[in-house]
Design a binder for these strands. Structure first.
Length: 573
RNA sequence: GCCCACAUAGCUCAGUCGGUAGAGCGCAUUCUUGGUAAGAAUGAGGUCAUCGGUUCGAAUCCGAUUGUGGGCUCCA
């Protein structure tokens, strides 16, 4: 057994210890499940009253007593009938017993607490070396919102107090990179209450970053055989009926706007518009594949409880594209999309992401064979690129299989960014066709893809990834000019012009403050380059450059420095 | 939407037992004109999220609403 497995067992045992502590406080507690999770454990309970954060230290103390008593974990096997008697007052356990296929079930006991459990467990409670209860949350029984809401207590547990403290420190550090905090500190974006939850304003600095990313995005899309479309924000109800969105997506759409007695809906997706562009005339196989992209702003109703900074909003801009191709082209197109995606992720320096392949769900549209072919194509390109991936069997959309890529935020939560989805539904619904070499009509393959996902979420991930210290090409201010005293302001303005002419984003700090204060300010703003201008520099027509890292570059002619910065911007470093 | 918590100046936060509000940063003005992470003084700035209740009196206690955070469900 390796360390990770041992730790997992200990964490699982810690959840039982917590359950015992809860039982001593609430003899009528009903117990649901209590597994080990990453870094810790949780247990779900139904209790006579709501727990509050003040309860956590009390529970912790009881747990410590149980751990100190070093009670042994003992395992027994019972028949299902015996188990049902034992757990007669535990409805959730009874339900679990029903679902166990074997005739025998395992139970574990430590102290006064007996739990239905497969195990394994540590031999006695004293083996739990370091733990801490972290939070209380609501959780639906079996994760189904139609079921009762239980109270879940999350805890963490480690092999030593030191490791636990290290983990807590790590969380504190991670909170410092939270995009919501940095967004405020660096003045990148706002989500003002006044306009409503999940609706974002980009301030000038956030706007600069977005522009840099979009410019790059457009250039690369044109270079990679895409054309760019612009489509409206609203469309007639008829359009959304044809697309099926009013049938299967209505709960995510905003109420209609009525104009001239016709209903218009805010778009939750861009696809119907792209399809209409496709259908504007007869298409020949000769013009396929068509790769049509759009930075399309969509609006989706998200439940109030799920909104979260930039990661989960109600209005967002997808870096969307639809690829229409023949069956013969499908494999090459998918391969190309993945290559393009990996290039993008690499450009932004994301080393860590998880790939998910989602396959055919039960209720699916489209021919079985098409699904198989599409799934194989997706699987093939993942293998081709030697990516590790997880298969989500039956997790595909009803209209096609997909590859999703998830990226972790600072706190280790995964957010879906990329999605590459086949669609066997819309070509059918919109009766899309192309004329083949045989002179007959055929239905094209349709692939939706968003590489960055949405600008909002991607920006959030980007902020956290760089901890706000963006590489030069993305930095909203690339160079801060710092005059040593007021009499150097005029020269600083001249330099500013020079930098701007060269396309470098620059600001002059001409406040009547000391140089040290201006440097400090620029450091806090995480500006990559500071250019200090004093008597010496003006006399020699040079610049003194300080990097964000604190590193001091040798005094150099302005032209040389401009060249360095331009090169860095061009290299995206 | 559901569970728990939180909401005080532009930002970060104090505010004890219910007696009508404070700091630092930032901002404005003035002084200072400096050499690689904080020069100084003065000043402005608050319906204590909103609405209602309890009370002689509410930032403080209670309720509702809105928003935010952590989860659940859902998703780019």
């Amino acid at each position: 057994m390796n360390e990770a497995e041992k730790l997992e067992i200990m964490r699982h045992s810690a959840s039982h210890v917590m359950a015992e502590a809860i039982l001593s406080m609430f003899p009528d507690a009903k117990f649901a499940i209590g597994p080990a999770i990453e870094n810790g454990f949780y247990y779900d309970f139904e209790l006579p009253r709501s727990l509050s954060p003040d309860d956590l230290p009390v529970i912790e103390n009881k747990m410590s007593e149980i751990i100190k008593a070093n009670l042994p974990f003992t395992r027994k096997e019972l028949t299902k009938e015996e188990a049902k008697k034992l757990f007669a007052n535990q409805p959730y356990k009874l339900e679990l017993i029903e679902d166990i296929a074997d005739e025998k079930v395992g139970i574990y006991q430590q102290g006064k607490f007996v739990d239905l459990c497969r195990g394994p467990h540590i031999s006695s409670t004293g083996e739990i070396k370091a733990f801490k209860l972290m939070s209380i949350a609501g959780a639906y029984w079996r994760g189904d919102e139609h079921n009762a809401m239980l109270q879940r207590v999350y805890g963490i547990a480690f092999g030593s107090k030191q490791e636990l403290d290290e983990y807590l420190t790590k969380i504190e550090e991670a909170k410092k990179r939270d995009h919501r905090k940095l967004g405020k500190d660096l003045d990148l974006f706002l989500i003002p209450e006044e306009i409503g939850g999940g609706l974002v304003i980009y301030t000038p600095k956030g706007g600069r970053i977005r522009t840099a990313v979009e410019d790059f995005w457009r250039k690369e899309h044109f270079a990679n055989g895409y054309e760019i479309l612009y489509t409206p924000h609203i469309g007639l109800s008829k359009l959304w009926e044809t697309s099926g969105h009013l049938g299967f997506y209505k709960e995510n759409m905003y109420s209609p706007i009525t104009i001239d007695e016709q209903d218009y809906y805010l778009k939750p997706m861009n696809c119907p518009f792209h399809i209409l562009a496709y259908k504007s005339r007869i298409r020949s196989y000769r013009e396929l594949p068509l790769r049509w992209a759009e930075l399309g702003t969509v609006y989706r109703y998200e439940m109030s409880g799920v909104l979260s900074g930039l990661m989960r909003v109600r209005g967002f801009t997808q870096d969307d594209a639809h690829i229409f191709c023949t069956p013969e082209q499908m494999n090459a197109e998918i391969s190309e999309v993945l290559r393009f995606l990996l290039f993008m992720l690499d450009t932004f320096g994301f080393p860590k992401y998880k790939v998910y392949l989602s396959t055919r769900p039960k209720d699916a549209v489209g021919e079985q064979q098409k699904w198989e072919d599409a799934q194989n194509a997706l699987r093939h390109v993942i293998d081709e690129n030697k990516l590790e991936y997880h298969v989500d069997e039956g997790g595909g959309a009803f209209y096609g299989p997909k590859i999703d890529i998830k990226i972790e935020d600072a706190l280790g939560r995964e957010w879906q960014a990329t999605t590459i989805q086949f669609d066997f539904n819309l070509p059918e619904r919109f009766n899309m066709t192309y004329v083949g070499a045989d002179g007959k009509e055929h239905q094209p393959y349709m692939i939706h893809r968003a590489l960055l996902g949405s600008w909002e979420r991607f920006f959030g991930l980007l902020i956290e990834h760089y901890a706000g210290a963006f590489p030069v090409w993305l930095s909203p201010v690339q160079v801060k000019i710092i005059p040593v005293s007021d009499r150097h302001n005029e020269h600083a303005r001249k330099l500013e012009k020079e930098f701007k002419t060269q396309g470098i984003r620059v600001e002059v700090d001409d406040r009547s403050e000391r140089m040290n204060q201006k440097i400090r300010q620029a450091q806090l703003e995480k500006i990559p380059y500071m250019v200090i201008i004093g008597d010496k520099e003006i006399a020699e027509n040079t610049v003194s450059v300080r990097r964000r890292s604190g590193e001091q570059l040798p005094t150099q002619p302005l032209a040389a420095f401009i060249e360095t910065v331009c090169k860095e911007i061009a290299n995206k470093s």
